[in-house]
């Protein structure tokens, strides 16, 4: 039997990328870089919410899901910070100003920036995990009066692997956001904290009953941070994490990004701990 007519909406395939152009390439760390993109001729700018991601296509090599790491209020300026870990991200790292790439998106559920209004907000990031959280920080600071205490806890591998270092220094200079940075290893010249990011938690003040937490980093880090927070009395529903799995389509068709019953692409990447906590203890899920 032929299918119902309402299923025959737009004719273009959601798998087809749009063309964007690299406006600026900036090296962040030895293996991490930032691409500033503008829409190609005739392409509309991307409107996105903090925590969403795009599929970036490097000509002839393939696509990779990359979170958006710019300021959502700056429409027309699309920023992705990318770590070179495979063929596609390495190819993206060879792009320079004026080069074109393919882009699909934005996809995924955002950080609960709106729902956090009235609460203390803890942003906890590890390594490259600061990149997907940066749009949320921009949003919080843009309407700072709507939130209680705001703290950013960031863990990196070493002092030279601290992402957005200048920006962290600028934020730290503000009186309305507490910024704590720690590294896993350092030479004695480093005057900051040494130790994993969980060791920063006891140092910040927040009201566990009225706190929204947003965490992004390696899964093992998020697991430990979430458990420490629960021990401090934060409700599982208030702890939000950004998850990562293999992803080919970003629109729920390819099946690769399943995490238990969830599709990371359409149900995530941001989840509250309550909805996925049961899966966290299961290996190879």
């Amino acid at each position: 039997m032929a299918i119902r007519s309402e299923a025959t909406g737009s004719l273009s395939d959601p798998m087809t990328p749009r063309i964007f152009v690299v406006e600026r390439f900036r090296r962040e760390l030895h293996d991490t870089f930032t691409l500033e993109l503008t829409p190609g001729p005739g392409m509309a700018p991307i409107v996105y919410r903090p925590g969403q991601f795009n599929m970036l296509y490097a000509m002839g090599v393939g696509e990779a899901p990359i979170s958006i790491s710019g300021d959502p209020a700056q429409t027309g300026q699309l920023i992705h910070t990318i770590r070179s870990v495979g063929a596609v991200t390495e190819a993206l790292g060879r792009l320079r100003s004026g080069d074109a790439l393919g882009l699909r998106g934005p996809y995924g559920r955002p950080w609960p920036v709106e729902a956090a209004a009235g609460n203390d907000v803890l942003i906890i990031a590890g390594g490259i995990g600061l990149a997907p959280l940066r749009p949320a920080i921009y949003c919080l600071l843009a309407e700072r009066h709507r939130y209680g205490r705001v703290a950013l806890l960031y863990g990196a591998r070493s002092p030279r692997e601290i992402l957005y270092r200048r920006q962290l220094e600028r934020w730290r200079a503000r009186f309305d956001i507490e910024v704590e940075v720690t590294v896993d290893r350092a030479a004695p010249e480093w005057r900051g904290s040494v130790g994993v990011v969980t060791t920063l938690l006891p140092r910040v003040q927040f009201d566990p009953d009225h706190t929204t937490v947003m965490i992004c980093g390696p899964e093992v880090m998020m697991r430990h941070v979430a458990r420490d927070l629960i021990q401090r009395g934060v409700a599982e529903e208030q702890i939000h994490l950004s998850m990562e799995r293999n992803m080919k389509c970003a629109i729920g068709f390819c099946g690769h990004c399943q995490y238990g019953p969830k599709f990371i692409c359409r149900d995530g990447p941001v989840f509250d701990f309550h909805s996925i906590g049961g899966l966290f203890g299961v290996r190879e899920i």
Partner: peptide, 20 residues
């Protein structure tokens, strides 16, 4: 999966829409 979600798969729809 391919027709009734947020996105529609163009290939599937093409093959399916007038099938008997």
């Amino acid at each position: 999966i391919f027709l009734e979600g947020e996105y529609v798969d163009a290939t599937y729809r093409g093959n399916r829409q007038d099938s008997f």
